[in-house]
Design a protein around this nucleic acid. Structure first.
Lengths: 126, 126, 126, 126
DNA sequence: GTGGTCTAGACCACC
DNA sequence: GTGGTCTAGACCACC
């Protein structure tokens, strides 16, 4: 899991927690039925108040990502099919947002392709 | 200028104003020496309180993007050379952030290239 | 802390707050890591609006003097080494400004030395 | 005359004009009966709006420093005796303010004397 | 409790 | 008209 919270980010901490867990689920690091870390543990790890982490967990449950059972923790509730659809949708959304910004900065799709090609050839990438 | 503020965005309104103006400057829509819209006008346009827009203008000045003068408005202070460097840096930063997310979602650079190729061939793009 | 704000001063209230806190830090009254008074408390003490004090705290953070954290207050972030350098720089700057004014009023360095000598010998000083 | 206005100073421009003219009179650069520069000329020189300079001139007259005669300009009205008293008072006030700041920064009168001694021996000063 | 953002509306200096 | 400061008071995220 991307385990650091940026206190200076305009994105509230509890939303950063939501994003990190979603990413973990969508990337396959956490699968349907897996147990999420306990609120207390995650709070300690991220240096947040347990209330803040709990808020994120409730939101994830409200969105149908997980199921909180008092006493037995929270479990991921995203079957593989739905996960793949969400993964694809999130990717396309990120791509769309990025392309919009890039284009408004004056970069063309070709410029972007060249940049990515260059990165592929960087020693650090291979 | 991208002239709407998303009230539901986690990004505070004044930061959305900062980003919109930066983008406008970096994309060349506003040049060194150009007058920004007045705080009151922009506030009216964006349906924000003048104080909120003033906060954005104050931050832009603090970052060296503009110069505010009582009585004669706010002017862009980004010479073309610095603008180009900033434009490049912002692009690379956005690209890096996007690639990080995409990779953690399980997409490879090749996948991304294919997506962009597909977009280039869409009728709406041509 | 020099805890009064001069409402008639041409120096805006929030800048007076900035100066007072800087002075307190540079003189050693507040040390690295110390908690500043809360915005609301200081506002009440100085009979200012919380927004005005918040503006000062925001500026102090932007200058790297302190760190504000929602929920846990604002803390001084000036290691002793940097503090001493800043203290020296501020003193020399004040001295330079004073000497400039004094000289333009027609007083020589010798005149100033005599005045200070006289003050040293005043009963109120000893 | 100290002929620049700092637009960024918290001290309003018209007060900066007042201070500059007072200093000029107290230092003997302008004597009782001398004509002040015309509002229009000084405004052009300082890159200010004539209204701003006029405001300073009216304030100076209100304080008894000058006399504005419509059509024939403004003349200094500070006899030598009063001027010397004012000069002395302003100096002592500046010295007092400086010493207060220096002491609260933790510098002693002896420290200050040593600094001034050092400046006297600098080649740039001699 | 803490700081961060925002609205509504006032007054000031400057143009 | 312009930007800069300030009050009064609200709501949010976080502790």
């Amino acid at each position: 899991m991307n385990l650091t919270i940026d206190a200076k980010s305009p994105l509230p901490a509890y939303q950063q927690v939501i994003q990190a867990i979603k990413l973990e689920v969508l990337s396959g690091g956490l699968c349907d039925g897996d147990l999420l870390p306990s609120i207390r543990d995650l709070a300690k790890l991220l240096k947040l108040n347990p209330n803040t982490v709990a808020k994120a967990y409730y939101a994830l449950e409200a969105e149908g990502f997980s199921e909180n059972r008092s006493g037995s923790g929270s479990r991921v509730r995203v079957p593989a099919g739905r996960r793949d659809a969400l993964r694809q949708a999130m990717f396309e959304n990120e791509l769309k947002n990025f392309l919009e910004k890039a284009v408004s900065l004056g970069f063309s799709l070709e410029d972007i392709q060249q940049f990515i090609e260059r990165i592929k050839n960087e020693p650090s990438h291979r």
